[in-house]
Nucleic acid binder design. Structure first.
Lengths: 240, 240
DNA sequence: ACCAGCCATGTGGTCGGACCACTACAGCCG
DNA sequence: CGGCTGTAGTGGTCCGACCACATGGCTGGT
């Protein structure tokens, strides 16, 4: 047993699986600042040797941190720490939305209503002319096409631009996850069949008016009503 | 159609790594309801054979879904689908908080302020006598000890009980992540050194009063002020 | 001298097999 | 009948080999 292994034996008392320990070690390295965003890590083989575990276990640890958006593996090049930006880390939030059903779907929508209304209110106070123009672009594009796929895409962009204008990228990323593609697609499926499409258009117009007027309270109310509308519909679907 | 496309048509679309595909396959199985919460999956060896990949790759996929809180592996027993409850899936949210620094920490705190104030307002309207008693238990316990570790624990429980009383488990789970252990510990380190401890006690008392009075507006204001206080302190620390 | 293209090197990605640690259950023994 | 033990089956770990890809230096031509 060499000195490295000897130190490990004292430092790391057998808690949990070796892979779990490896995950914690790497996370700790980043938290302590020993690994900067964008920096390249040692190779899988070296890392495994450093922690005294096999490459297989180390790969599982790396894979775990990869899906969490903390690390990024580039085939043939190396492993890198992500920029640790909101978007990188909160991508997993979409997974939650995708796998949630029934009552939890409504709870998620409730959270979205709270955040979206506040974000829209903030946006009304802070939005610039350029950002407003971008919002309008998606609004008109949404109203001039009949392709549901395209409408959905512009709808998402519409809200994303607003959330971004609120000046909190973290909140924007969370809302992005809560409005993830499959999540909305699932809800939309039966939603627009009930002729609620015109209403959605009116609600978007109301939000836009509040943004133009820089009226936070009106924006909050309009956004809350918009999400609440979907929320109510979904609630009625679950308890017929 | 070239040869590559022809081969893909017969076997499987070669998009991304095999592990990534395996993750998607399992996620899809759950999303489609073919795997129920709590259900036991086939063994790693069987799963690998079914998808035509090696056990190593399958293990990485399983590990990835494990850290996301979707699956749970019990040594010697098997792999199971979690209950897919908010707590299971949003545990990873704590990782984000742990690895966030600087401006993003403030953004996270801002999100927490929005959610916590709303949750506290909801709790004021809905809280029962039993839940109120539980809240009071942590409040008094927090005020009758000097052990910072214990104070922190009761502080966390205090807010968790309130969030739970709001009736939205998903929101409670998110707030739990935003107040994760290391996150708060980091902030507290220098915070209470500035004699802000008495103020924290007053703020908690104000929140409690609002809950007793079933006054949502007062509760919202008290909670917003409470989190905002920490937020302001942190902001001043970052831009000296 | 310069540049394009090739190729050696090193990296992550995949595979198969072996063994260990643990759980669960059936069957045995008291 | 109940507790105990043995055993089959599971996830956990390790090893070594090979593949796919990215990179940078080197070779060959111009």
């Amino acid at each position: 047993m060499d000195e490295t292994q000897a130190r490990e034996a004292v430092t790391a008392p057998q808690k949990g699986t070796v892979t779990q320990r490896a995950i914690e070690r790497i996370k700790a390295m980043i938290a302590e600042g020993r690994l900067e965003p964008g920096q390249r890590l040692p190779t899988e083989r070296d890392l495994a040797a450093q922690l005294g575990i096999s490459r297989s276990s180390m790969r599982e640890a790396i894979r775990a941190l990869t899906v969490l958006g903390v690390l990024e593996a580039r085939h043939g090049s190396g492993i890198y720490v992500t920029q640790l930006e909101a978007g990188d880390l909160l991508e997993t939030f979409g997974v939650v939305a995708d796998l949630s059903r029934g009552p939890r779907l409504i709870e998620l929508l409730e959270v979205r209503r709270i955040l979206e209304s506040t974000a829209t209110a903030l946006a009304a106070a802070r939005i610039t002319q350029e950002q407003l123009a971008e919002v309008e672009k998606h609004l008109t594009a949404m109203n001039t096409t009949d392709d549901p796929e395209e409408i959905l895409a512009h709808d998402l962009s519409f809200h994303r631009e607003i959330a971004s204008a609120a000046g909190n990228e973290t909140m924007a990323a969370i809302l992005e996850g809560l409005s993830s593609r499959t999540f909305r697609a699932r809800v939309w499926r039966g939603y627009q069949e009930e002729g609620a499409f015109a209403r959605t258009r009116r609600e978007h117009a109301a939000i836009h008016r509040a943004l133009v007027a820089h009226d936070p309270e009106a924006a909050r109310a309009a956004a809350a009503a918009h999400v609440g509308e979907v929320e109510e519909w979904l609630r009625s679907q679950l308890t017929p």
